[in-house]
């Protein structure tokens, strides 16, 4: 029995090792390519490990191209969008979870139905509306649509429903208003889903492509994915530069992941149980 169990464990590990290795090999390829000089790129047979390690492409990416600027843009836009989503969604979720009012269900259903409408449909008119408001090419324009995030409202509402009404009633008897209830009771008691949503939204806003691509045309304002895609057209086959850029663009999210991976993993797993 024990031997059989050991064999089973071993084969599970072996298969997972194989799948993970295949998944991660492209990243090793990225690192190897980013360290090549331009002549080594076209070497046949290919150099798995560059014979001459060159940091030229990193120098180019960090010095000649606006990578650091884009990095700061990405940080600002991602944080702004994530926080806006969390604030607006938690306010609405609190109301949907705890109060009865006219048209409540209708509004909620309309919100949910809008999940089916992708940004590619609404993108053109939103672009036009924001252009009319003079907000295209601005951070506000990129961030603004994240004020409405149905998934976040839904997840928070499910969680807040389980917060006992007694806490709220007690606070109200003590003379607190609803805003204080939200700030002192609802938010602190919803930290688990708020953290989950923070990491999930951070990841998706960080990697978002379609929307920033459309709204930001000023090269000084673009985010990392947009800058990378522009480099991709510009330096189509200069793979060492492209790979160095990809590597640099991945670093911040990998650092966040290293410290907060349990929130990422847990958050997405929980999504599967619901």
């Amino acid at each position: 029995m024990n031997k059989k169990l050991k064999l089973k464990s071993l084969s599970v590990i072996a298969i997972l090792f194989l799948i993970t290795a295949v998944s991660l090999v492209p990243f090793l390829w990225m690192i190897s390519t980013s360290l090549k000089n331009s002549s080594a790129l076209m070497a046949v047979p290919i150099e798995w490990i560059p014979k001459k390690v060159s940091f030229d492409s990193f120098v180019k990416v960090l010095k000649e191209l606006p990578f650091l600027k884009s990095l700061m843009n990405s940080v600002a836009i991602t944080l702004g969008s994530t926080i806006l989503t969390l604030v607006s969604s938690s306010l609405a979720a609190f109301i949907f979870a705890k109060f009865e009012f006219k048209f409540k269900n209708l509004i909620f259903i309309l919100f949910l139905a809008s999940m089916m409408v992708p940004i590619q449909v609404t993108g053109i008119p939103i672009f036009i509306i924001l252009t009319k408001l003079g907000l295209n090419n601005s951070f506000i324009g990129v961030i603004a649509p994240s004020i409405f995030n149905v998934f976040a409202i839904f997840l928070l509402r499910q969680y807040m429903k389980n917060i006992s009404n007694e806490f709220i009633e007690a606070a109200l008897i003590d003379g607190a208003n609803l805003f204080q209830v939200y700030l002192k009771i609802i938010v602190p008691m919803s930290l688990v889903p708020l953290t989950t949503l923070f990491v999930i939204n951070f990841m998706s806003y960080w990697n978002d492509y379609f929307w920033p691509l459309i709204i930001l045309t000023d090269p000084n304002k673009v985010t990392l994915p947009v800058l990378l895609s522009k480099l991709n057209t510009q330096y189509a086959t200069e793979y060492n530069t492209l790979m160095a850029g990809s590597l640099v663009s991945m670093t911040p999210i990998l650092v966040v992941y290293t410290f907060a991976q349990k929130y990422f993993i847990r958050g997405i797993q929980e999504g599967g149980i619901k």
Binding site: T20, P26, F27, W29, M203, N207, S249, Q261
Partner: peptide, 16 residues
């Protein structure tokens, strides 16, 4: 480890 491709942006992943 298997989550790393998920973290990678589509643009960076596609370039790789």
């Amino acid at each position: 480890l298997l989550f790393i491709p998920v973290l990678t942006s589509w643009v960076a992943g596609s370039i790789i």
